[in-house]
Simulated assay, not measured.
Amino acid sequence: MARYFFDTYDGSRLISDAEGIELESLDMARIEAQKALPDLARDALPDGDHKSFIVSVRDDAGQVVLRAALTLIVETAPDNRSA
């Protein structure tokens, strides 16, 4: 088993994972990163119309081995009503 560290970025702040978790493979780390993204988006709703959330996965050596991102875009439909 290998230890992976999950650093998160919500568009305004970076939270570095100092503890990490042991997982069987990089594929398992990918699944964990993908599962974390919706929670990140829910916890840090955008104050504008666009926000990106990123999870970077590092190995024991500190090398980024995987990066997963989720972009949330809010668009307002144009008003088609006549004045």
Rank of each mutant, 00 (worst) to 15 (best):
M1D: 11
A2R: 09
R3A: 06
R3W: 00
Y4P: 01
Y4S: 01
F5N: 01
F6L: 05
F6T: 00
F6G: 00
T8E: 12
T8G: 02
T8W: 00
Y9D: 13
Y9L: 03
D10C: 02
G11E: 00
G11P: 00
G11T: 00
R13A: 09
L14I: 06
S16A: 13
A18L: 12
A18M: 07
A18E: 10
A18I: 04
E19M: 08
G20H: 03
G20E: 06
G20A: 05
I21Y: 03
I21E: 12
E22C: 03
E22K: 08
E22I: 03
E24H: 10
S25H: 06
S25E: 04
S25W: 06
S25I: 05
L26E: 14
D27M: 11
D27W: 09
M28C: 09
M28P: 00
M28Q: 11
M28W: 07
A29L: 10
R30P: 00
R30Q: 11
I31G: 04
I31S: 07
E32R: 15
A33W: 03
Q34W: 03
K35Y: 05
A36S: 15
L37M: 05
L37E: 03
L37V: 02
P38M: 04
P38N: 04
P38G: 05
D39G: 14
D39Y: 09
D39L: 15
D39R: 14
L40Q: 06
L40A: 02
R42E: 14
R42C: 03
D43E: 15
D43F: 06
A44F: 14
A44T: 14
L45T: 15
L45Y: 07
P46G: 15
P46A: 12
D47S: 12
G48E: 12
G48K: 14
G48L: 13
G48A: 15
D49P: 03
H50F: 12
H50P: 00
K51F: 02
K51I: 13
K51P: 07
F53E: 01
I54F: 05
I54W: 02
I54H: 06
I54K: 12
V55Q: 01
V55I: 11
V55L: 04
V55S: 04
V57E: 02
V57H: 02
D59F: 05
A61G: 08
A61Q: 12
V64W: 09
V64H: 08
V64A: 11
V65T: 09
V65N: 06
L66K: 05
L66W: 11
R67D: 08
R67N: 09
R67W: 04
A68K: 15
A69Y: 04
A69G: 12
A69Q: 15
A69V: 10
L70H: 11
I73R: 11
E75P: 02
E75D: 10
A77H: 08
A77G: 08
A77L: 14
P78A: 13
D79V: 11
D79I: 11
N80K: 08
R81Q: 07
S82E: 10
A83R: 11
A83C: 04
